[in-house]
Simulated scan of single mutants.
Amino acid sequence: MPPTRLAGLLGTAIREQRQSRELSQSELAELAGVSQATVARIERGERAPSIAVLERLLAAMDVQLVVGVEPLDAHLDTRIDGLAARPIAERIDGLGLDRLLDRLTDFPQVITGCAAAVLQGAPVPADTLQIALRWQDAKLFTRWLETNYGQRWNARWGEFGGVWLEPEEPGEHLWSTRYGEIRATMCDELPETIEVRHGGRSYQVVPLVELELSEPRAAELLRRYRDRQLVSDG
C-alpha cells in the first residue's frame, strides 16, 4: 500500500517530538517497546502506526495526540489554478516574505516548505514563511521571538498563546510575531540550498526535489499541481 498523507503527518510529528527531546531512534524504540526499524519507517512516512503503537511512542515522550478534522482538499484545485494564472512576482508579493526575512538576521536559516516552492515557480498555496533552523540556534530564535512579541500556536486552544515559546518544548513549531507568522523545521544541520533571485533579491531555498522528500505538505501540493498539469495537457 502506498504511503498516505496521514502516515506522513504522523511520521513528522513523531520525528519532531523525538528530536526536541534529543532522543535517538533506538532510544525512543526502547522506551516504547518497538524496534528501531519500526520507528524509522514511521518517521519516513512509509508505515502508518497502529493506534496502540502510536500511543506507546507518544506516551514514551510524555505527550498525547490531539485529533481534529477539516474539509477535504478539493477546494485546493481552484486555488492552485488561480495561483498558476498569476505572475510569480504577484505570488511572492502576496507572501510578504521580505518584511520578515529582513529581520531574521540573528541566526542562520533557509527557506523551506511551500514558501520555497513558490519562490521556485510552483503555484502552490503558501500562507506562512517556513524556515529550516538548527537546534543549536534554538535559544537565539527564542530570544528573537521574545523581542518581537512572539506567540506559539496552541493546538488545544486553537489560537496563539498560552504555551512555551521554546522550540524544545512540546507543541507545533508555528509562531506569530509582529512581522508575520513563522513555521520552523528544526534540524541538526541546515539542508543544502539553491539560490533564486526575484526583483533584485536573492533567496536561499531548499530545492523542489528535496522538498518532496522532507516536507510532506509541500510534497502533497506539488504532486497535486503536477497531476492537474497532466490532466490539462491530456
Rank of each mutant, 00 (worst) to 15 (best):
R183P: 00
A29H: 04
G68L: 10
I194A: 12
G234R: 05
V231N: 04
L221E: 03
Q120V: 10
Y225E: 06
V205D: 02
V209M: 11
M61P: 11
Q204F: 05
G234S: 14
V34F: 03
V209F: 15
A85E: 15
E169L: 01
E169P: 00
R178M: 08
V66L: 15
R197N: 11
E189T: 00
A116W: 09
E30C: 01
C114D: 12
L31I: 05
D127Y: 03
G180R: 05
S26C: 02
P3M: 10
G45Y: 07
G68K: 12
A155I: 10
A219N: 12
T185R: 09
H198A: 15
E90T: 13
D127V: 05
D98S: 10
I194R: 15
N154K: 07
I14M: 01
R217M: 04
A52F: 10
A29G: 09
A48I: 02
L129I: 14
L230R: 07
A117T: 04
V34Q: 09
G121Q: 10
L165F: 06
Y179A: 00
Q229N: 02
R15M: 05
L119K: 02
G171T: 06
R178A: 15
A32T: 12
T105D: 11
G121P: 10
L221Y: 01
L100C: 01
T4I: 09
G200P: 07
R103V: 14
G33W: 02
L28R: 06
E172W: 04
P123D: 09
A85V: 03
E168W: 07
A32H: 13
A117V: 08
C187W: 00
W135F: 03
M1F: 13
R217L: 11
L165W: 03
P170H: 09
A126W: 09
D98P: 02
T105F: 01
Y149K: 12
A40F: 03
E172Q: 10
R156M: 14
L83H: 11
L100Y: 05
P2C: 05
D227L: 11
G113N: 01
P2Q: 11
I131M: 05
G8H: 09
E195T: 15
G33A: 03
D227C: 05
A155W: 08
S24P: 04
H173M: 14
D77Q: 14
D137P: 13
L83E: 05
A218R: 02
H198T: 08
G234N: 08
L83N: 12
H75W: 11
A116L: 09
G33Y: 07
L129D: 08
I131A: 07
I14C: 00
G180S: 09
I51Q: 11
L119P: 11
A37C: 04
V231L: 10
A184Y: 05
G96F: 12
G150N: 11
L97F: 10
L119W: 07
G11K: 07
T78G: 12
G96Y: 14
L72I: 10
A40Y: 02
Q25A: 15
L133A: 08
A116H: 10
Q136G: 02
S202I: 08
W153I: 14
L23N: 04
E22I: 03
D77V: 13
E27V: 15
T12R: 10
E210N: 06
A117G: 06
I42Y: 01
